[in-house]
């Protein structure tokens, strides 16, 4: 049976279509989820896509966190469902306290879009098990508020527990502490990533095909996971 992966659309979500396409290319069935509906429609995993949910008013992700669908996402994540937050989705996961820390304004104060090399540091997560430890991948980064910050104790804990999933290599595009591009929760089922793997899934439109690995990882994870 094909895995069904939900992609949430908030008002202001922009990369929801791209995330759905990536899910499809990886071989799963994308299921569109609506922010206002507290319902996951029986999906096996959820992607919170990039964009400017609710206009990024107040603070990025701060309002989306209260969307009816997020109650279900938080519950499901607690029960082990794989959840991937990309860019704005990462911000929402932090605001929802599914992940520690926060994403703040890029230190150079500009929006920046470039093709970025990442090093995958943790391959035990639901979203990165298709990679080799230390593997370098090329993924577009594009954000205005992607600077990851946390207090030193949290950062140390993330490092010690192997929860830094990916780091920027060859230049940090936004000033993130310790070059952090992606992190995971303790269980490894929730991953937040600032760059956009869904934009690196086709040779025609992306800088590489490296993004597919994130989506095939979750399929592998779901096959191995107890029903």
């Amino acid at each position: 049976m094909t895995a069904r992966i939900g992609v949430v659309t908030f008002p202001g979500s922009l990369d929801d279509g791209d995330a759905a396409r990536a899910v499809r290319i990886a071989g799963a069935e994308p299921v569109r989820l609506w922010h206002g509906e507290p319902e996951l429609h029986g999906v096996d995993a959820v992607v919170l896509p990039g964009g400017f949910s609710y206009g990024d008013y107040l603070r990025c992700g701060a309002i989306a966190r209260f969307a009816p669908v997020m109650e279900k996402v938080v519950d499901a994540a607690g029960a082990g469902m794989p959840v991937l937050g990309i860019c704005n989705g990462f911000q929402i996961l932090c605001e929802a306290h599914l992940l520690p820390g926060a994403l703040t304004r890029n230190q150079h104060l500009h929006f920046r879009n470039r093709d970025q090399i990442l090093r995958i540091e943790a391959t035990g997560t639901a979203w990165t098990n298709a990679f080799q430890p230390g593997q370098e991948v090329l993924i577009p980064v594009k954000n205005g508020e992607g600077c990851y910050v946390a207090d030193p104790a949290t950062l140390d804990a993330l490092e010690a527990e192997g929860r830094v999933v990916a780091r920027y290599v060859g230049g940090n595009p936004n000033g993130s502490q310790r070059d952090i591009a992606a992190i995971t929760n303790q269980a490894g089922n929730v991953v937040g990533i600032m760059p956009h793997p869904e934009h690196a899934v086709e040779a025609l439109t992306g800088p590489s095909l490296d993004g597919i690995g994130f989506f095939t990882s979750v399929l592998k994870h779901l096959v191995g996971a107890p029903a």
Partner: peptide, 22 residues
């Protein structure tokens, strides 16, 4: 100016390498 993040870990030239990596 103003495009280098303060915490950048490499001199500016490395950017150029990143531009065309594939």
């Amino acid at each position: 100016g103003g495009v280098q993040p303060f915490e950048v870990t490499a001199p500016a030239e490395v950017e150029d390498v990143v531009d065309v990596p594939t």
